[in-house]
């Protein structure tokens, strides 16, 4: 990794971790969703640094431009009058123990494992991605279209007002 890549990785990494932490800790739903947006954007930056530029823009396109907006929309429809903080939880100690255990295990495993250094990135990932999606990954690619359709129908069926 070059100097600038390392610096940017640290910046985006810290940004991602802090905004994720804020998203799960804040008691205001709106701020939580906005922090999720910041987290996703920072992660898109990391994807770009890992030479996955298409994944990075898809992340911004689908997550930040789609899912976060959808979440804000749902929040505003479900509690337009409520601006108070949500109830704080009573399971904080249990949650933090499990989270420390899971996180500690993952970090310990990745620190202990011997991995080869990062190989040089491909100059342009897009043609390879296109080829992969139309050859090896064709079936999952088609399948995700079916799943998306099913999800749209399911969402419509769930929110449709029942006629008496």
């Amino acid at each position: 990794m070059t100097t600038a890549t390392t610096v940017l990785f640290v910046v985006f990494g810290v940004l991602a971790a802090l905004s994720a932490l804020y998203a799960v800790l804040t008691r205001y739903l709106l701020r939580s969703i906005v922090a999720l947006g910041a987290f996703l954007t920072a992660l898109a930056g990391i994807f770009y640094l890992l030479a996955a530029d298409f994944v990075a823009v898809v992340q911004i396109f689908v997550y930040v431009g789609g899912i976060v907006v959808l979440m804000l929309f749902a929040l505003m429809l479900s509690s337009s009058g409520v601006r108070h903080p949500t109830a704080s939880s009573d399971r904080r100690s249990l949650g933090s123990i499990v989270a420390y255990a899971v996180g500690g295990m993952l970090v310990w495993a990745s620190l202990r494992s011997t991995l080869p250094g990062m190989p040089a990135a491909l100059p342009d990932s897009v043609p390879y991605l296109g080829r992969a999606f139309l050859n090896e990954q064709l079936f999952p690619f088609e399948l995700i279209g079916v799943i998306l359709l099913a999800a749209v129908v399911a969402a419509l069926a769930l929110v449709r007002k029942e006629r008496a």
Binding site: V24, S89, G95, S96, A99, Y100, V102, G104, V107
Partner: peptide, 14 residues
């Protein structure tokens, strides 16, 4: 790993 743990914490406590 750290991010995943943060997510776990959120699911369990919120």
């Amino acid at each position: 790993g750290i991010l995943f743990a943060i997510g776990v914490f959120g699911v369990l406590t919120r």
